[in-house]
Amino acid sequence: METLLNYITENEIFIYLLLFTIILGFEVISKVPTILHTPLMSGANAISGIVVLGAIILIRQTDPSNLTILIPASMALFVGSINVFGGFIVTDRMLGMFKKKKKK
């Protein structure tokens, strides 16, 4: 219990941010029409690729001779960035189809 309390105090700002972002996330999505579910899921997926920032920070903090960390970290960056690039482009392609139709 004490450790839990410690955890909360240590990360106080994070926990505030957490709460508000959860509400924000719910609020942003709750009124979306069914036809947008698939593109939206894809778009959200691309955003979850934000994890690559961690990989970049990790690599920048690492001693250039420390290959045991650099190699897996750049792998993490590699796979994560595929998620980012692929995700945004796929979403764009899906949404582009709605657009084309609209013009008619």
């Binding site: 972002t21 959860i22 996330g25 719910f26 942003v28 999505i29 939206l40 959200a44 997926n45």
Partner: peptide, 11 residues
């Protein structure tokens, strides 16, 4: 991350 977590859950 949390944005996607929340949005993904509601979706």
């Amino acid at each position: 991350g949390i944005l996607v977590g929340a949005a993904g859950t509601i979706l």
